[in-house]
Every structure is written in C-alpha cells, then in structure tokens.
C-alpha cells in the first residue's frame, strides 16, 4: 500500500503530469468556447428581419416576372432563355415558374443558419471524444511513468528497496490505473458540466430522462474502460521496451501506419469484411455497443456482419491482457543491469 501511494505521489509530482493536465483543461475549455459560439437558441429580431427581407425579395421575383410579359426580353440576365430551344414550348408563366419560386415559398428561416446544441442528442458523443483524448494522454503518462523509471536508472534503485518485482509492477500498474480512472471520470464530469452550461445558455438541454442517463452512462463507462485498457497497454509496452519512446512509437506506428497496412493487406487478399481487421472497427463497436459491416456478394446480395460490444470487449481485452502478461513475465525474469 505504501509503495502504491508513493507511486501515485511520484506520478502526481511529475512535470509531464502537470503538462498533460493543463492540456486536458485547455482542451475542455476550448471545446466549450467553440460550442458556446457555434450554438444559439435562435436568430435575433434583426437577423430575422434581414432574412425576411431576402425571402421577400426572392418571392417578389416571381411576381415581377409573371406580371411583366416582356420580362425576359427586357432583362439582359434572362434574355438567353428565349433563345434556348429547350424552353421553346414554355409559356411565359411556365418560364417564370421554372426560374423563380412560385407562391411565396421562401421564408426567413431559409436564409438564417443557426446551430443549436442539443445536449440530450449530442452531449454524450462529445463527452466520449473528450474522455478518449484524455485516455490517450493517460496512456502516454502511464508509459512514461514506467519508461522514465527505466531510462533514469530509478528502477534498479526501486528494486533494491522492493525486491518483490510483482509487487512493484502491481503498485505501478495500480497507480497508473488509479490516476487514469480519476482523470477520465473527472474529464467526463467536467465536460458534462461545461456542456450543460453551454446548452442551458446557448442551446437546448433537452430531455435528460432516466433512459438518457442509462444509455449515456453505459457509453461513457465503456469509454472509461477503454481508457483504462489503453493505460495498461502503454505501461506494458514501456515495460517490455524499457523506454517510453518505444511504447509511444509502437502505439503511434500502429495507429497511423499499421492499421492502414492491415486494411491494404485485407483488400489485396480479398478477405471477407476487411474492416474487421482494423482496430478502429472493434473500438467503434465497443464504444457504441454495435457495429455492422456490409459487403456485396458476387451474386449481388448484401451480406452483413455484426460485431457486438461483447465481441469487441473480448478481443480488445485479450490483446491488452496479452501484452500485460508478457510485460509481467519479462519484468519478473529479466536481469536489471
């Protein structure tokens, strides 16, 4: 317990932790500011008046055309229509109707773009995104907590104090998970608070009923669980490579290049449902609860493959557990030189 607590304190006192915390805070504030300025509950009176003027002008164009038999002859902008064979059989009224909207169809709202943020419809996905980004930071922090210990030589020092390596690894992993969980939950709560405030003032909160809470909490819980898994993965890779950069390199390499290569290979090899080889597919299935993949057979029939959150959870869990077991074995057996 002492070791676990000191590991938490060690991580808290690191400069990287402070930098990541500031980044996360600034990111949440920036998100709020963007939402705040993009969203509005409706147009102002002046905006409405301006838009109505445009609508009236548009609607008036038909009337002007219909009332003036020489509209096309007299208008340099429209005289070309009389020479176009396509409109040869059109009556004057029909031509007016062809080019201008009839019957005062334009309304003011057609000329006003207003985005209204609806917390009940969009909030959970924005919170999920924020938690995922902070999860990535937490993964790097966990990897760094292990990697920096190796590169600074502090690991040998620590093992001289605590020879039980499994206990040391458990304490470090436990501390990383605790800090990750706290960060992700805090992010979700703060993001919800800021979005609620934004929706209350500049948008619509909507109906946050029991069903909404149940669905939202399920999605956010799965996102937090993914963040915890990412943290374990980062720490395990750093433990295997004994360096933060190795963990970061492997993760970034896979996310950017590896997944692309897998997709190319799956297409080249004509594998059924090639998207199932992409990690992103499984992550999406896990987060959203379900993912449907489609493909067309040679006979022109559509086939569907469904990946449930359980399928995705098992696969992602096995990958993470595999790396964690490998890291545990390596740490227990390796010489610390």
């Amino acid at each position: 317990m002492n070791l676990y607590q000191s590991e938490i304190h060690r991580t808290r006192r690191r400069v990287l932790t402070l930098i990541f915390a500031i980044m996360a805070g600034v990111g949440l504030l920036a998100l709020t500011v963007i939402m705040w300025f993009n969203s509005s509950t409706g147009p102002t009176e002046a905006q409405l008046a301006d838009a109505q003027e445009i609508a009236d002008e548009m609607n008036g164009e038909y009337e002007e055309c219909a009332s003036d038999e020489n509209f096309f002859e007299d208008s340099p902008d429209w005289s070309w229509a009389l020479e176009d064979e396509y409109y040869e059989d059109y009556s004057h009224e029909e031509m007016c109707a062809e080019f201008f909207t009839t019957g005062s169809e334009w309304v003011a709202e057609d000329f006003i773009y207003t985005y209204t943020f609806h917390l009940d419809r969009e909030g959970v996905y924005i919170i999920m995104g924020a938690v995922l980004v902070v999860g990535l930071l937490a993964m790097l922090l966990s990897a760094s907590a292990i990697g920096a210990e190796w590169t600074s030589g502090g690991m040998a020092n620590l093992l001289v104090w605590h020879p039980n390596r499994l206990r040391v690894w458990g304490a470090k992993l436990g501390a990383a998970l605790t800090i990750t969980a706290a960060s992700l939950v805090a992010t979700a709560i703060v993001a919800f608070g800021l979005l609620y405030l934004t929706a209350s003032v500049r948008g619509e909160v909507g109906n946050l009923n029991a069903v909404w809470w149940e669905d939202s909490l399920e999605i956010i819980s799965r996102t937090v669980a993914l963040g915890l898994g990412m943290s374990v993965l980062g720490a395990s890779l750093a433990m295997l490579g004994r360096h933060t950069a190795i963990a970061g390199g492997i993760i970034a390499g896979y996310l950017i290049i590896g997944d692309l290569l897998v997709r190319f290979a799956s297409i080249a090899l004509r594998i059924e449902f090639p998207e199932r080889l992409s990690l992103y597919t499984w992550v999406e299935a896990w987060l959203l609860g379900r993912k449907e993949l489609f493909q067309w057979t040679a006979a022109g029939r559509e086939e569907t493959m469904v990946i449930t959150s359980t399928d995705a959870g098992i696969l992602i869990g096995l990958v993470i557990a595999g790396f964690a077991v490998l890291a545990t074995w390596a740490f227990a057996k390796r010489d610390v030189t």
């Binding site: 002492n2 000191s6 304190h9 060690r10 006192r13 210990e149 600074s152 502090g154």
Partner: peptide, 17 residues
C-alpha cells in the same frame, strides 16, 4: 535518479514507499 525531482522529494518518495 529521476533528474527532474529534487533530492528531498526523491528521498521522501522512497521513504514513503
């Protein structure tokens, strides 16, 4: 040692552990 920590903090963390 972890070079970004002070001598006191390094020892305090070890003592705590």
């Amino acid at each position: 040692f972890f070079k970004h920590f002070s001598g006191r903090l390094t020892l305090q963390l070890l003592a705590e552990s």
